[in-house]
């Protein structure tokens, strides 16, 4: 763990997490900027972003609102285009990655289609990629079981609680077994108890599937609980101020939250966030 003076170091600090340098780089962002043209003039949503995310990492973007963490996730997902710099995902452009159906995107809200049952909702990405009915059923069964919704196949979204809906949306994202799971504050609307539970579930799924996860959050404890790397961001202009590699084990449980190491990491993130606020 070390503080980062500039973003070039930030770039290096992410990848060498594993001692072996043969880990593939999944996402490579170089000098990326994004300026939104608004009626009130240009807004620097992202400024000089440099970041490497390795395959199998769990990377969290954390920062106050307006720091561009969601925007950066959207650039990775090809929902926004950068105005300068470059980004590659799995060796290609985000657009090609999207066209190759590399992504599973989980939104802030569950975004389930209200006219489809939970099972049919999970089928959406599979239907789009034209998988056979048998394969669809197999995948949906597997992942609904994984998120603990095996008994809710035939329910409609409104019949489920908010936490269950969000789990269904995670199952939907996992069904096509995407290489990259992009999650935009997926548990932001949930109460703390449900959120803790969901964090544990997500870690299990991540450990089981070995996916690369990029996770946007504004909760420090959530970031510590989940991540292998924490990217601290700051607003005006949106930029990366620090990348912290977690010294904690990949698999964590709730008991870990009362340990010294957990608190130390949380304190480091908090300090990094506070530092930037002082500059603001």
């Amino acid at each position: 763990m070390y503080a980062v003076e500039n973003s070039t170091v930030a770039e290096e600090s992410v990848s060498p997490q594993s001692p072996s340098s043969n880990k593939r780089v999944m996402i490579d962002v170089k000098d990326l900027s994004l300026v939104f043209q608004t009626n009130d003039g240009p807004v620097n949503a992202l400024s000089d972003i440099n970041l490497k995310i390795g395959e199998g990492d769990f990377v969290s973007f954390i920062g106050p609102s307006g720091c561009g963490k969601t925007t950066l996730l959207r650039v990775i997902a090809d929902l926004e285009k950068q105005t300068a710099g470059s980004i590659s995902v799995n060796g290609t452009t985000p657009e090609d990655a999207r066209l190759n159906r590399l992504y599973g995107y989980v939104f802030q809200a569950a975004a389930l289609l209200p006219w489809r049952t939970i099972k049919k909702n999970c089928a959406v990405p599979l239907e789009i990629s034209g998988h056979s009915q048998a394969h669809q059923n197999k995948q949906i069964d597997k992942y609904l079981r994984m998120v603990g919704l095996q008994d809710f196949h035939e329910k409609y979204p409104w019949q489920l609680s908010g936490g269950m809906q969000q789990r269904a949306s995670i199952a939907r994202a996992l069904c096509i077994e995407p290489d990259l799971l992009l999650m935009d504050e997926p548990f932001g609307a949930l109460d703390e108890i449900t959120r803790d539970h969901m964090n544990v579930e997500l870690l299990k799924i991540w450990d089981e599937t070995k996916k690369t996860v990029v996770f946007v959050t504004h909760s420090i404890s959530e970031a510590v609980m989940l991540s292998t790397h924490i990217v601290v961001m700051s607003p005006r202009p949106g930029r990366i101020t620090k990348v912290i590699e977690s010294p904690l084990p990949r698999m964590k449980d709730l008991a870990l939250r009362d340990t010294e190491a957990f608190h130390a990491l949380a304190a480091e993130i908090r300090a990094a966030l506070a530092e930037e606020h002082a500059i603001d």
């Binding site: 599973g104 809200a109 975004a111 289609l113 959406v124």
Partner: peptide, 23 residues
């Protein structure tokens, strides 16, 4: 959000129509 969901899965216009817009 639903439209962006379709976009991230690279749904065609007709898929987006029959799965989403029509409903």
């Amino acid at each position: 959000m639903h439209l962006e969901l379709m976009q991230t899965y690279n749904a065609s216009n007709s898929q987006t129509f029959w799965m989403l817009r029509w409903y």
